[in-house]
Simulated scan of single mutants.
Amino acid sequence: MELKLKKYNEQLQGWPEKGHHIMAQYNDDKIVVYQSYRKEIGEFALKNQYFGGEFSLDRMTWIKPNFLWMMYRNGWGRKEGQEYVLAIHLKMSAFKRYLENAVYSSYNDKLGVSREEWQNQVKESSVRLQWDPDHDPFGNKLERRAVQIGLKKEFTHSFAHEDILLIENISDFVKEQYQFVLNDDLGNLMIPEEKPLLFNDENLNKTLRLDKN
């Protein structure tokens, strides 16, 4: 795997406990996001290094840069239809473009626009932004918020093909690490090394409601 790994307990010491944070493995050029699929879709993506075959370009697809949030969502690869876990290395420029075009998936007063304006933005945008409670390895909710990004139409097409640098199958790794969770042995749990992401664009950070600590 090209994923960089680090012990969960070691990372935990430096992670923010609350606030809105894009926890991810990234550098200036790329960022890793996660998805889970049934075997047919996963195998096609792994073999061809893009999404096609039974992958639907007409449906919204959700990407998650936070490994443990993905493990909460797919039950550590045990949920039906989510057994094939992929680490997708994306161009950072593409990931930023998604967020620059994103509209919040639900309305709240903090958005700074009226409900009607938000509804119009939703109609026009093909990217959704959603903040959900982050989770620990056991699936317990945390105060920290984790992001997921929904793509459709032209953004799904772009994501499925030209935005991808590498697709890795991490299903076996996930199964191996889940055994430590089952045994309540977090001291040996290894997960992808992650840190909070902030952009050089302060307006974007503000729009995303990203916290700095």
Rank of each mutant, 00 (worst) to 15 (best):
E193C: 04
F51G: 00
Q148S: 08
P192A: 06
R115G: 10
L3D: 03
P65I: 01
F55W: 15
P137I: 01
E168F: 11
K175V: 07
D136R: 04
F44P: 01
Q25N: 09
F199L: 08
Q177F: 04
N9S: 13
W76V: 01
W118G: 03
D172C: 06
N27T: 09
M92H: 06
K4C: 06
Q148E: 08
Y104Q: 08
L198K: 03
F138V: 05
E154D: 15
L111D: 03
N200F: 04
L46M: 10
L5G: 03
G187M: 07
W15E: 11
D163C: 10
Y104M: 10
H161P: 00
Y104V: 03
H89V: 15
E117T: 12
D28S: 14
N213I: 10
L210S: 01
L166N: 13
E176C: 07
A146F: 01
I63R: 02
D163N: 10
Y72L: 00
E43D: 14
M1K: 09
G187T: 11
L129F: 07
K91L: 13
A160Y: 02
K175G: 02
N66T: 08
Y26P: 00
L3H: 05
N169F: 10
V122E: 05
E80G: 06
F159G: 01
F155M: 11
F138T: 05
L204V: 10
K153F: 09
F138I: 04
N188V: 07
L12V: 06
G75W: 05
V147D: 00
W15C: 01
K206P: 02
D201M: 07
L99M: 12
K175C: 05
L189N: 04
A146D: 00
S105H: 07
K64W: 02
N27M: 11
N101R: 09
V127T: 04
S171F: 05
G42V: 06
Y84I: 04
Q11V: 07
G112T: 09
N48Q: 14
H21M: 02
P192M: 06
K195V: 12
S56G: 11
S105E: 11
N205S: 08
M190E: 14
D184C: 08
Y26N: 02
E176G: 04
R59H: 09
L57M: 14
E100N: 10
G14E: 14
S126C: 13
F95Y: 15
I31R: 01
L182D: 11
L165R: 06
K6S: 15
Q11P: 04
V147C: 05
V127H: 00
V122N: 03
G52N: 09
M70A: 10
Y84N: 05
E143K: 15
Q179I: 09
L210Q: 01
S158F: 14
N200D: 15
F155I: 03
S158D: 13
G53C: 11
G19K: 02
L165A: 09
R209I: 01
E193Y: 12
R59S: 13
M92P: 02
T156I: 12
M190A: 06
I170Q: 01
I149L: 05
I41S: 03
K91D: 13
V32R: 00
S56D: 13
L186A: 08
K18Q: 12
P192R: 02
E54N: 15
E10F: 13
D136A: 07
